[in-house]
Design a protein around this nucleic acid. Structure first.
Lengths: 144, 144
DNA sequence: CATATAAACTGTATTGGTTACAATTCTATT
DNA sequence: AATAGAATTGTAACCAATACAGTTTATATG
């Protein structure tokens, strides 16, 4: 069956990182994986509290911090006031449309960035953020 | 003389953006340009209030927001809790050492990032953040 | 099965960076 | 000198994030 299968996959993913796969943790990771929108703590909490009435916002914070420390999620600081989270750990960039505020992924070749300036540095993580206008907002702006 | 020359250069830079070159604004921009450390609001305020006793933290916030809006400074969201500012508008990345917390610039070829995923998008700004360990911290860690 | 121990979760209080806003001071023009 | 407009100031408020202590849940052991 679909649900238990997904639960098992996420559960074993968490166990691999020595994280006890509690219900809240599984649901939070499932939510993260199912959204490419890189949700905020508030979005995650608001969505999940409908199905998990006892859920606390602190638990969402604790869980996400745990995921980040275990390298199965990462922080997206593309916005100045609010932190977003992403469970896609592959190399990709984030584009934020300054008009509609939507954030979308884009791929690029990580190795293509020449970092000879950082010879001798250990690079653990790369975050690439682009800002501008998406095609939809570009079109609607040119109509004004 | 040195100071008035610098003041004039920064003053004309501000005028070009239709920003009245007040004393506070000139000093804040001068501080930004002289530091490669990408200071926080608190650092700027603490440093300048010694010489400008009437300076208010709100003025630092207002001024930096004005600079960012006018595209003569940019926001660095390399840290989760605090915003940093950079007056170097050329294409470069920022590396943060997770051990000593130092932030340093590195250069890379902006055009080298293939963004075919973003065809049709208007890209206004690019921020590249790397995290890891600097050579000094790497050396001291391996001694443990 | 019951009990003990640790881990996970919860709710509230607190912190700290940032903004809102009204009052004050400064600047420029007549 | 007087006035208008802009810049600056200081306080209050906002809100994302964390600290913390109490509660619940899960696991292990007898």
């Amino acid at each position: 069956m679909e649900l238990s299968n997904k639960t098992e996959i996420i559960g074993s993913m968490l166990l691999k990182e020595n994280i006890k796969p509690s219900y809240a943790r599984i649901r939070i990771m499932e939510y993260l994986l199912s959204r490419k929108s890189h949700p905020t703590v508030d979005e995650i909490y608001t969505a999940l509290v409908k199905e998990i009435p006892t859920l606390s916002k602190t638990t969402v914070y604790n869980t996400l911090n745990l995921f980040v420390k275990s390298n199965i999620a990462r922080v997206i600081t593309i916005e100045e006031n609010e932190t977003r989270y992403d469970a896609d750990m592959s190399c990709h960039g984030h584009f934020k449309c300054e008009s509609c505020k939507a954030i979308r992924d884009f791929s690029f070749k990580c190795a293509a960035i020449d970092t000879s300036d950082l010879d001798g540095f250990l690079i653990r993580e790369k975050n690439v953020y682009y800002y501008g206008l998406c095609p939809e907002c570009l079109a609607s702006e040119s109509q004004d």
